[in-house]
Design a protein around this nucleic acid. Structure first.
Lengths: 191, 191
DNA sequence: CTTCGATGTCAACGGTTGTTGGCCTACAGT
DNA sequence: ACTGTAGGCCAACAACCGTTGACATCGAAG
């Protein structure tokens, strides 16, 4: 009220407000049900501002779905603890930022979102798996299997909300899933 | 052409045509992008017929998403082969019927579809796991974990289409996933 | 103080969607 | 042969969507 907000900061503030509202709506409703009008209402601005700042709905989604897995350095992790470290990291990453839920919900129906999802796991996860690469030829496969287990966990816990998966404590889930990831990373098929 | 089709069969035929087209569209596009008009066009009838036969879009989806996992009798399977049998069964079931892909796509954005998904896994899968129940208290958890791995596999292979998961041969996937299911069914957390 | 550009608002457009009611046609029961 | 009725089509409605353009407002540079 009293202190006038500098002008250059104002646009950045609303930009951020739009992005926050967009992530919430995309996460809760998916790409098609999340309307620009609803997002603008949440951010307390006019729908046309969304267009001005992000060009189109797809542009807004692309900005809102920018995501970094923030995978830790795996080189200084004891090889037999890789599964546990990864399982715990993903669970915490997911629980603290709804961007990933938004991306997952949207990826089921929106081709662009699916493409972005492929990019994230192909680039970030595959690269991380490659750093301790004891099996260069199978790296992509191993990363894919890890993604399948991780995304299945996220899907059942945050999207479909299967009761047993929702009710389990994070550490309980880590205990169950860690050995699976460990085998996908360093083991062989058929046990 | 020559022989007139009996009237009672005609309606059943178009009912089935609608259902088939609906499953295809729901599987390919998800709930919101699959329009009644497109489904009707595929079935070569008028959109209003869809309403007459199924009441509403939600009613049509409910009918199209009716699904039986067709889980085999698990009582006469050697306990140490449960994971392998289940993994192979799910993969074949999924590859042969796109209903499940339609349900999975829709479950990400449509609450009714998610509810139906919960029902399928809570009823059919949990019941199957309970038949050889060596751990009555943990049955629901074990079924949930199996669902997480199975759905993660389906999501990455049929929906998001992660290249390594798409390219792997079915038996290759079975070899990797079977031990995971086996441990979720009969093992303990933390290996 | 004036001027210019960026920020924000308002109203509207064109298109698509689920859904509805009226109309035509042709077959089954009498 | 006649009639009622069910299958099928056409046109339209009301609502909602993404998107656009014109107009107001206000802070900063000259």
């Amino acid at each position: 009220m009293a202190t006038a907000t500098p002008r250059t900061q104002r646009s950045d503030a609303t930009r951020a407000a739009i992005l926050r509202a967009a992530r919430e709506r995309f996460a809760a409703d998916g790409y098609e049900r999340a309307t620009i009008r609803a997002i603008a209402a949440d951010a307390r601005i006019d729908p046309s501002m969304v267009m001005r700042y992000y060009g189109s709905k797809e542009g807004l989604f692309a900005a809102a779905a920018e995501f970094d897995l923030r995978l830790p350095e795996l080189t200084d992790v004891p090889p037999e603890q890789l599964g546990e470290v990864l399982a715990r990291h993903f669970l915490h990453r997911w629980e603290g930022d709804e961007t990933m839920a938004a991306l997952l919900r949207a990826a089921s129906t929106n081709p662009g979102a699916a493409e972005k999802m492929r990019g994230i796991f192909a680039d970030q996860l595959t690269a991380a798996v490659a750093t301790f690469g004891t099996d260069p030829a199978g790296t992509a496969q191993r990363a894919g299997l890890v993604a399948a287990q991780i995304l299945g966990l996220a899907l059942t816990r945050y999207i479909v909300r299967l009761p047993p998966m929702v009710e389990m404590a994070p550490e309980e889930l880590v205990a169950w899933v860690a050995p699976t990831l460990q085998r996908y990373l360093t083991g062989n098929p058929g046990r």
